[in-house]
């Protein structure tokens, strides 16, 4: 059985991301990193593929920028990496993205499980995950905290899902798409040997025609980016003879401002 996971390069979460004068999103000279949520899905793909004696493949959809995340994935221990890209592919449109993703999963072949990290940290979305499951026509299990059993022979999966205020245990038939939470595992660091192997790897690029996909016009249109309005911060020092008096004045002000 084949396990597929997706990843992407995103700006480092500590980078100052802003929109420049040309309306482009920039993050200075800060490094890009693997989407932090994907660290968990990559690790889970490696572990589960090993458990079932299968193969783990990682896919990124987008420009060459994402090769870095793919090489990081190979250095961690994924068996194969593929990038999907064609001019005209609008990755900001999640339906476009999901259509290409589903076609790539089908091209890999014999895939029993697709594992996503909970979301993309750059765009802050996860709808592309559900849309990929829908395009594939497979079961979707989100917010998985633990894979309790992956049975390749009987084609079933048993997971523990996180719910608000509790947990839920579910079984489902394979093939399935899951999204995993932080804490499902402890992602490994790329080893020296892994890095050496990954740096020498040639990453194949699949075009939309390789996937046999013709995309309709994007159903969403990116109009533009803008920075958040700058919030004016006013600092006021509260005077008072005693800490109690200061606290009382503070409470009054908070009530006035309807914070309390």
């Amino acid at each position: 059985m084949h396990i597929v996971t997706f990843t992407r390069s995103t700006p480092d979460t500590t980078a100052k991301v802003e929109v420049n004068g040309k309306g482009e999103v920039t993050w200075g000279d800060a490094a890009t990193v693997v989407n932090p949520w994907d660290e968990y899905s990559l690790e889970e793909a490696i572990v589960q593929a090993k458990n079932v004696g299968g193969k783990a493949t990682v896919i990124a959809i987008g420009t060459e920028m994402h090769n870095e995340a793919l090489k990081h994935s190979l250095a961690m221990g994924l068996d194969a990496a593929v990038r999907v890209w064609s001019d005209g592919l609008d990755v900001t449109d999640s339906l476009h993205w999901a259509t290409a993703a589903a076609a790539a999963v089908n091209k890999v072949g014999d895939v029993g499980l697709v594992i996503f990290g909970k979301e993309s940290v750059d765009t802050g979305t996860d709808q592309h995950i559900y849309q990929t499951a829908r395009k594939l026509g497979w079961t979707m299990l989100s917010y998985v905290a633990k894979i309790l059993e992956l049975d390749a022979a009987n084609k079933t999966i048993k997971v523990e899902k996180v719910l608000e205020g509790g947990k839920q245990v579910l079984t489902a038939k394979l093939p399935a798409v899951i999204s995993v939470m932080k804490g499902i595992n402890e992602p490994r660091y790329p080893s020296f040997i892994g890095i050496r192997k990954a740096s020498k790897a040639e990453i194949p690029v699949w075009s939309l025609s390789d996937l046999g996909v013709t995309l309709p016009a994007a159903s969403t249109q990116l109009v533009g980016y803008s920075n958040l309005p700058v919030q004016e911060v006013v600092t006021e020092i509260i005077d008072g003879a005693t800490p109690q008096e200061k606290a009382e004045k503070l409470v009054e002000k908070l009530l006035e401002a309807k914070v309390l």
């Binding site: 490094a31 090489k71 250095a75 660091y189 790329p190 020296f192 890095i195 050496r196 990954a198 740096s199």
Partner: peptide
Amino acid sequence: FTEEHEMFRKSVRAF
């Protein structure tokens, strides 16, 4: 430093 060296740097830095 090559790209391979920089990949290694990221791994050690994370460690």
